[in-house]
Every structure is written in structure tokens, then in C-alpha cells.
Amino acid sequence: MIQLLKDLWDRITGFLFPQQYFAWQSVIYLALFSWAMSWVARFSGTTAFTQWVIITGSWIFWVIGLGWALEANQIRPFGIPIAPWVSGALVCSYLFALFPGDHLSAALVIWPLVSVGLVALPAFISWDFKPKLPFPLVRQQLILLLLLALLFSSWFQFYFRLQTWFQDYPTLLSDDFGRSGFVLKIAEVSEGRSGGIPLLTAAEQQVKDQLDNTPWPWVERWLLNLDGQMVKIRNETRSVLLDSSEAAFWELTAQPRSLENGYALKLMAVWTGPASNPEGYFLEKTCLIRPRIPPVRSTSAREENIQEPTPTAMAQVSCELETPKRLGQPAPLTG
């Protein structure tokens, strides 16, 4: 038991305090020391430049120390030497933390290149900082590594390009990418991103503004001239998608249908852009327009009013909240 504890103790001290000074532990201690010193500097109120110098030193020691430690301990998951990648990531996060703002895309894109640069640096510069030409085989391997890094960088760029597309055309995100040979959706995105929903809401507001609480004959005349009215509504609702590139892909149409009591007006936002269904799809919102007889004031007055003309019915518009997605194109109007 004692022997076991002694072995363990030896191993721990051997890990923490190496035999010679030229070891990765020394560099890690330097990193920790300058990191602690940067806090001392901060609390003792030195200038920003002093703090920057100390912190930069700490970062440099971290990069060297971690890379050295990973390499010296032969930490190679799946046989891949990860030391340059970790060091490259540290360098990138240091470089892009210097500037304020969101640099995640730039940092990820240059990360593979920085890592290859770190690998290539010792091959091209000797210990006394003189340039040298590596052996042909090393050169060939560095070329391969550089090409691989460029490929990884391209993949990152492609990922960010996809995000640009989804910012330009948010409706695309609500579609299904099952047939794509390039992308995979790893989480379901709510349909709420579709640009058709605000468009339909704006159209609903227009219809309500024009028809709600208007005399019933006016409603019927309005519906007869639906095509002309839709031109107006389209113009009014254009501002909803004004700052979006996908405005050109949405087409607003409407179809009336008479019920036994009033009309049902189907407002449809037709997506004419890229879609998983070859026929495209559309979102629809159904509005019910019903006549409503204004309430008569008293029952006793009713008897006297029989001879008088009945009060004109007023229209009442109510729209459904859902905007179900239908595949294909809207059926042509029959009748």
C-alpha cells in the first residue's frame, strides 16, 4: 500500500516537476505565471499597454506549451496529431479576440491555415532563425497538408455561405432538405421564419380595413372586382418584405367562395422560389366574410318597423390564425 502511494507520488511529482528545465511543463508554468501577473498588473492599475504585453506573452506561452505537451505525451486521438490544430485554434482565438465584434467565421476559416503554418514554421526556419529548405519528402508532406487545410477551410466557408443564403431567403429554412446531396438538417426549424406569414398577415389587415363594418352590397361589389382589389393589396403589402431578397418569390392571390351565409375568401401566398416539392407550395389563410344585421333596439319597435326597409347588413370579417402549407399550385378558379 505504502509502495503504491509512493509510486503514485513519484509519478505526480515527475509529471509536475520534470527532470530538466527544457520541458513543456516549464512553458506551461510560464504561461500560468504571466497570466497571474496580468491580473496583478490589472489590479495595480498599470496602463493598458503593459497589460497587453503581459497577456500576449501568456498567450504565446500557452500556444507553445499546449502544443508541446500534446506532442510530448503522444496524445493522438484516431492517430491524428492534434497538437498543431489546438495551437492554431489558440492563435486564432487570440488574434480575433484582439478586435471587437463577431469574427467567428473569419477565425474558423483561417484556423486550418494557421495550424499548417505552425507545422511548417519549424521546417522552414532552423533553431537559430535562419531560413532553410526542408527535405523533398517533408516538402511533399507539407504541400499535402496545406491542400488539406485549404479543403477544410473551404468547407467552413461553404457552411457560412449556407448561412448567408438562409439570411437572404429565410423561407428556405422551413423546407425539407431530404433530397439534397450537400446539406443535412440537424434540428427542426419552426415554420415561423417563412416570409409568407407576415405577408398574409398584412394582406389580412388590408382586407379587414377595407371590408370590416362596411355595408354588405359594398362587399359584394368589392368581391366582384377582386382582381383589381388584389393589385391594390399587393402594392400595399409590398413593404412587408421590402428589405428581404425573397420578395420577388412571393405572389399574393385570393379566391372567393360563396357559402350559404356570406363568403369565404382564401388568401394565398404562393412561393415561386426553390422548393423541395417540384410543383412548389403555397400558404393559405381563410377569411370568413359574413353579413351581420345590426341589432334592433327594442322588440316593441320591431312591429312598427315592418313597413320600413330592413336595416342594411354590415360585413364582419374574421380570419383564421393558421396558415397551413399546401403543396402544388393553387387550383384555378372554377365557375
Binding site: 468547407w155 461553404f158 457552411y159 449556407l162 448561412q163 438562409f166 429554412l173 432538405f177 439534397s180 446531396g181 450537400f182 446539406v183 443535412l184 438538417k185 440537424i186 434540428a187 427542426e188 426549424v189
Partner: peptide
């Protein structure tokens, strides 16, 4: 944002 990844392309 990253719900769509180019994993199939890779």
C-alpha cells in the same frame, strides 16, 4: 442558426 450543416457534402 446552424441547424443546417454541409455534412453530406463533406
Amino acid at each position: 442558426e446552424a441547424a443546417v450543416l454541409p455534412l453530406r457534402a463533406i
